[in-house]
Nucleic acid binder design. Sequence first.
DNA 1: CAGTGGTCTAGACCACGTC
DNA 2: ACGTGGTCTAGACCACTGC
Lengths: 247, 247
Amino acid sequence: MTPRPPKYETIKQFLVHGISSKTFTDAMPSENQLAETFGVSRMTARRALDELEREGTVERFPGRGTFVRKTPHYTRGFFRVRPFRKWAEDINVTLTTRVLEAGLIEPPHEIAKKLQTEDHVVVLRILNCFDDKPVRYAVRYLVADPCARILEENLEQESIHDILINRYRLPLTKISQSMTAVGLTSPIARLFNIEPGYPAFYFQRLIFSYDRPITYVEYTMRGEMAFDDTFTPQLDPADFGALFSHS
Amino acid sequence: MTPRPPKYETIKQFLVHGISSKTFTDAMPSENQLAETFGVSRMTARRALDELEREGTVERFPGRGTFVRKTPHYTRGFFRVRPFRKWAEDINVTLTTRVLEAGLIEPPHEIAKKLQTEDHVVVLRILNCFDDKPVRYAVRYLVADPCARILEENLEQESIHDILINRYRLPLTKISQSMTAVGLTSPIARLFNIEPGYPAFYFQRLIFSYDRPITYVEYTMRGEMAFDDTFTPQLDPADFGALFSHS
DNA sequence: CAGTGGTCTAGACCACGTC
DNA sequence: ACGTGGTCTAGACCACTGC
């Protein structure tokens, strides 16, 4: 026996079907109408509409009603950049990390500006391989103040993000980044054992902990590494923040 | 007078504060406990916990309880792909669209499979320029059934997505896509007036309207066109749906 | 077994928008 | 004035986990 589906699920199905079959093109049934026609309480009918709103299918306005979202606030799409370890797991390869350089330096001017510090900064140059094939090169800078001790960590085994978040208790709350496609420069091509000009992704990423810059990193990544995603268009992420005002 | 905040908001604040001050490090108060200590009904206490779960702060297990999420399901980041017109507006250039081909064809096997149709499909080949400089080349296929009439539209003026959504009432509810970095092939390099091998983004995107494939498109885009984003890390989009509360 | 979360009911009051 | 969604109550039954 399959367990009885929740009633609000049944109602959701009904509503979604009604939208896709163009029975509902603008105004949706009200909570009271649904409650009556399905013989449920208003709270149950309401839940169906609430979930459709959260999923972006529908908009609700107090005093007016519930309406099909015509121009869904969709972003045309987005690409997730997943933790590299998970990525390796997904495609079932072994991730290795080689630290090419780790030290404290006077930051170049532009780095000092990004990290908003006059102090020294940690610099790390790291090469990642999938099954011994070099796939990503990273140059990373970290503010010395809470992060200098990262030089004593085992960076070849542990994720830098995990160290920052879990060991140093630095919640990474804001990310600002940019991505372009480039051809490999000769030095990096040599690291990758391929010819210069080979197509690659180039990322620049600045990460904050509560408006304080923590680390800036530049990644170069082989271009055939595909970013894949399947998702439902949602509210524009520009509206994010508001949800997380942990004031 | 500021209006009284909802009770569940007060409870949420209490819980969030308790987590950040490490009062709650694992198990959270149960619904009944919260209901009693705050003098509210269980449904109200429940709502506070429900929202925290949707926001990724907390995990709930039937029969066991509610627990602080230790490794927040953060995405390391993502890149939005914005409507091309908006992109052009942002950087203050003029977007022009040239239709290189528009017709009905027997679909190649792989396209027929993606679009789940045995029928003919519309094919469009389009070149986009920013201020007369070619920046994007698109080959698009659309299922003939609701989309054949798109051949009579003015595709050089109007966004295809807008036509599908607003004119044909096809809400684009699911997107599946992939992105790699490539070097330009000779034919496309000729279209772009640059040398073959020039770094570029290559997108493949399949768009659905309620689980029915509508259009499949392959974009090639000059690599120096940067994707930028600033955002707050959130739940992994794999857990979508429940993620968004009302603005 | 007692406690948890998941669902659900049949009421209620409110602020709001439309007429 | 009426209908809408937003909030809230005080109960209820269930399936599930832990002891």
